[in-house]
């Protein structure tokens, strides 16, 4: 089927431009089905977000959208408004599990996982329990109990200490990636930064850690992000801010623009068109700047 003809047939059908990992194509040879978009919780905001779930490889991907004003696509012999570019990138399911573990921790007791990961808003969360190697993952963020002589069930309880340690490692490996990718992490906007090798030497280690902390904070609740900041011994971004309860101020870290966009996205389109939130790295530079002031 020629794509040109195809486009002609689909008058007005919304076309999504996607970038996905190459191995999904290879994996599709072996599997009949098992790739699906589902709505799950965004562990940072608690709202809904679109994820791509691979039943075959038992892998979870998040969908992020590049969206900038005044863009459109020409796709063969058709035009698509909006100029959106969707990214499906692997996501560590532990961030989502953590959302539920923290919620369940209010009850303050050890619980089996299937009683922790319960969600009326996003019932597809049960898919998370199908992911392989969960026990090993949970090791990073929970205390666990189990008596193999009675049953094979494991009981888990959120551990903040372990979680912070785990997040600290995440920040370290993200910091390393920022350096290898020559991402400009300084609070000043320098148009040269994205491609100039010299920039690396002028960015301070602290800037990298702060930027990495910001990236990770997009996957954890606000409170934990503050704790992580202390754990990393990041200085308060500004002395002019009122002292301890910096929470209110930091609320602006939540991608405000993204929310707006998402709403627009919603009103225009229904259902599947709600593929994702343009958050994170895309608005990151601006946020880092705000925070730096």
């Amino acid at each position: 089927m020629a794509a040109g003809v195809d486009c002609g047939d689909r008058v007005g059908a919304r076309q999504h431009v996607f970038l996905v990992p190459e191995y999904l194509k290879d994996a599709s040879k072996k599997m009949k089905s098992g790739l699906m978009f589902v709505k799950l919780v965004n562990p940072c905001s608690g709202e809904g977000a679109i994820y791509l779930f691979n039943m075959c490889l038992q892998q979870l991907f998040e969908v992020k959208v590049f969206k900038e004003k005044h863009h459109s696509w020409f796709i063969n012999q058709s035009v698509q408004s909006g100029g959106l570019l969707h990214f499906a990138t692997p996501v560590d399911p532990l961030f989502l599990l953590l959302h539920y573990l923290i919620k369940a921790d209010k009850e303050g007791k050890f619980q089996p996982l299937d009683q922790v990961v319960v969600d009326n808003m996003f019932p597809n969360c049960i898919l998370l329990l199908k992911l392989p190697g969960l026990e090993k993952l949970l090791h990073h963020v929970t205390e666990e109990k189990g008596n193999p002589e009675i049953d094979n069930k494991k009981y888990y309880k959120y551990s903040k200490e372990k979680t912070l340690k785990w997040l600290g490692k995440k920040v370290n490996q993200t910091t390393a990636a920022l350096k290898t990718n020559n991402v400009n992490v300084s609070s000043r906007v320098q148009s040269t930064a994205f491609f100039s090798g010299d920039q690396v030497s002028t960015d301070k280690e602290e800037d990298y850690v702060r930027y990495a902390h910001g990236l990770i904070s997009d996957y954890i609740p606000k409170e934990l992000s503050d704790d992580l900041s202390k754990y990393l011994k990041l200085p308060e971004p500004s002395a002019s801010l009122p002292n301890p309860p910096s929470k209110k101020i930091k609320l602006s870290d939540e991608p405000v623009e993204a929310k707006e966009d998402y709403t627009k996205f919603n009103t225009k389109d229904l259902k599947t068109e709600k593929l994702g939130l343009p958050t994170g790295h895309f608005v990151m530079a601006a946020q880092r700047q705000k925070r730096g002031k």
Binding site: L19, E62, E68, Q173, F194, H281
Partner: peptide
């Protein structure tokens, strides 16, 4: 858009198992 194209490599680091 060029910045966005660097996202996958950063995402890989953020979500890699520690």
């Amino acid at each position: 858009v060029r910045g966005a194209l660097t996202w996958p490599s950063l995402a890989a680091a953020i979500h890699a198992q520690v």
